[in-house]
Design a binder for these strands. Structure first.
Lengths: 199, 199, 199, 199
DNA sequence: AATGAATGAGCATTCATTCAT
DNA sequence: CATGAATGAATGCTCATTCAT
C-alpha cells in the first residue's frame, strides 16, 4: 500500500498529502471529506486508498511530518545553547525566531500539527521544556535574574508563540523576524519605564 | 419550542445544557453525539428536540453564555481602568486575575467558548483591544515606557492567558491568583537582572 | 440496541429476522444486501441498525437460533434413548424422523445454519456423536450386529440426512416421515435379498 | 485473451489456476479476492486479466475441470456395469471406490466443484442417476431385493459420499479404499444381527 | 509477458432529526 | 413532559477491472 515504486506514484501521493493538509487545516478532521481531498488533488476516490490506508492514516502522517520538523527544531535549539554570542537578547531572539521560522515552513501542516492535533499539547510541553533548559542555562550564567521560575517563563513564551502564530504568522500578517523581535523585546526588558525602581 | 414554562422543563433543559457542555468540551463539536448528551442527561433522543432546535443550536447557546460572560468581563475591565490604586503592577495584576477568574467559572463552557468555538478568535481580538486600551491609558500616564506597542503587548498577554488557561487553569493545576501573579511579574519587570542597563 | 421495549419493536425485529433468513438462504451471506433485507421487511436502511448491530450480527443470531434448536433436538434424542418400544427399527425410525422434523421447522434457517454456516461442520459432528451413542446403546443390547463401527454408521446417517434434507426436505418434495422411513429401511435391512447368506 | 501460446504463458496460467483453486476452496467465491490469487501466484493484478476474463471466468474454468473429471467418472461407472465379477459387493465396492478416488484427485478443485459450486446439485443428481441405473441392473439380476427403490438408495449413497468426502477424504483423515469399504459394508448387509428374521 | 497507476460501481454504517402516541 | 419507532442524507471504504506503458 505504501510500497509503490514509480516517480509518478510518489508524485500523486504528495499531491494527495498537500490537498489533505489544506482541507484538514481549513475544515478540521471531521468536516474534511475524502471526496474533497481527492477532488482537489485531481483523482477519484479509490486512488486515495492506493496511497493511504484511511482518513486517519493520512492525518497521522501529516502530524508525524510536523512532529519530525519540531524534533529538528528542538535539536537545533539545544545546539544553540552552546554558542554564546555577545548579547543575551540576541541569543534569545535567535531562538524564538527559529521557532517561528519552523512554524512558518508549511502553514497548513502547522495548523494541523500545532492546533488541530489533540496530541499537540504534549508537543508544546516538550518544546517548553527545551526552552526552559536554555533559559535556565542563561540564568545560571547571570543573564536573567535569579528568582524567575523559568518553567513559567517558558510556558508564557509558548503561549505567546502559539497565539501570535495563529493570529499573525499563519495569516501572513507578520513574519517570523518581527514577531520574534516583539516578543523578546517585551519579555527581556519588561514594561516598566527605564528609571523605575525594580522591586 | 424553547419557551416551555414548567419548573421541571426548565430543569431538564439545564440538565441537557450541562451534559452537552461536558460532552462538547471533551469531544469537540463533531465527535459529540446527541445520543450521548441525552444519555448523560438521562433522557431519550426526542426529548432533546423539546428544548433545542438542533445540535448547532445548543452549541450556539453555550457559546452565547460564554460570550455574555466575557462581555461582562470586558465591561468590568473598562471600569477598573478608572480607579487608580497606588501601584501599576497591582492594577494590572487585578485585571489579569479578573480574566482568569472569569475563565475559571465554568470550565466546560470555557473550553467550548474559548478553544473550540471557531469565533473565539474574534472574541480574543475584542478582549485584546480592551486590554490594549487599558494599557495605553497607563502608558499615557507614564507608568509604562513609551515605545512599547501596546497592541503587541495585549496580544502577547492574550497568548499567555490562553495557554496558561488551557494547561493549568482548566486542568486545575493552578489557580487564577497565582497564574496572574506569574504573568504580571514576568511582563512588568522583564527578565534581565536588576542592575543591568536597560537599553 | 437490543433492549427495546414495545410490542411493535419486537414485531419489527422479527420481520427483519424473517426477511434476512430468506435472503441469506437464497443468496448466501455476501450476496445478501442489507438494503434488500430491509426492503423485504418494509423498512428503510437505518431501521436495521435499530435492531441489529451489523450484517454479521443478524447472521449470527439466525445461526444461534438454529443452534439452540439443534441442541433441543440432541437432548430429545438422548431422552428417547431411554424408552424402549418393542421394535428397534421403530425406535431408530422415530429418532431419524425427529431429526428431519427439526430440520423442517424453519427451512430458511435450516439452510443457513446447516449449510451456509461455516461452523455447521462442528454441529454435524456433535449430532453424529449423539446418534452414535444411541446406536451403540442398542448395539450393546444386541439389536445390531456387534462388528459395526457405530461412528461410521452415524457419519453415514448424517450424510444421508444432510443430502436428503437439501434435495427433498427443503425443496418440499418429501416429508420428514417418508424420508425417515426410506433411510431406516435401507440402513437396517441392507440391500441384499432376504435369503442370501450374510457374510 | 485466453489463447496465449508461449510455454511461459501456459505456465503462468497454471500457476494462477492453482492459486485460485486454493483460495476459492478456502474462502469461497466471494471472499476470494483477485488480489490474493495474484499475490499467491506471484503476479500483479493486471496479469490476471491476461489469462482470464474475470473472476467468474476462472471459477467457471475450475468447475469445468471438475465437471469433465466427473463426466469421465460416470462413463467409467457405466462401463463397469458390464463386467460382472463373482461378487455383488465387490462390484459395488469398486464403483464407490472409483468415485472416492476421483474426488481425491485434486482436493481444492473437488471442494470447489462438489461443494461450493451452485450447480453441484445437478451434478450430484446426474451421478445419482448413473448409480441408480447400475443398481437397478443388479437388482433385475436378483442381487438386491426387489422392493428397494434404487433412486432413494442412490441418493443416500450420494449423501454418504458427500459427507464422508467433506469430513474424511478432503481432510486427509481417511483414504478412498477404506471409506468405500465402510459405506458398502453398511449398505449391503444392513445393521441387524446375522440371525434376525428380516421383515 | 508483465506492471504501475487509476477508476466505476457498490455497500455497510452513522447520525441528526421527526412522527405518532 | 416524554418516548418508542422510524428515516433522509451522507460518507468511508472495497473490489473487480482497465489503461498506458
Amino acid at each position: 500500500m505504501e510500497s509503490k515504486k514509480g516517480r509518478k506514484g510518489e508524485e500523486s501521493r504528495k499531491r494527495l498529502l498537500k490537498a489533505a493538509a489544506n482541507e484538514f487545516s481549513i475544515r478540521g478532521f471531521h468536516d474534511t471529506k475524502i471526496s474533497e481531498i481527492v477532488k482537489k488533488a485531481g483523482f477519484t476516490q479509490p486512488s486515495f486508498y492506493l496511497y493511504f490506508q484511511s482518513k486517519e492514516a493520512i492525518f497521522e502522517e501529516l502530524i508525524t511530518d510536523f512532529h519530525s520538523r519540531v524534533r529538528k527544531l528542538t535539536e537545533s535549539l539545544l545546539l544553540e545553547n552552546g554558542l554564546h554570542t555577545e548579547d543575551v537578547s540576541k541569543r534569545v531572539l535567535s531562538a524564538v525566531e527559529t521557532v517561528f521560522q519552523c512554524l512558518a515552513e508549511d502553514k497548513d501542516v502547522t495548523r494541523i500539527g500545532f492546533f488541530l492535533n489533540p496530541e499537540a499539547k504534549q508537543m508544546k510541553k516538550d518544546l517548553a521544556m527545551v526552552l526552559k533548559e536554555n533559559l535556565e542555562a542563561e540564568q545560571r550564567l547571570g543573564y536573567f535574574h535569579s528568582e524567575l521560575d523559568m518553567e513559567t517563563v517558558a510556558e508564557c513564551l509558548i503561549g505567546m508563540i502559539e497565539h501570535l502564530t495563529d493570529s499573525f504568522l499563519l495569516t501572513g500578517i507578520k513574519d517570523p523576524a518581527s514577531l520574534a523581535a516583539e516578543i523578546v523585546n517585551l519579555l527581556i526588558y519588561g514594561m516598566l519605564p527605564k528609571g523605575s525602581d525594580v522591586r
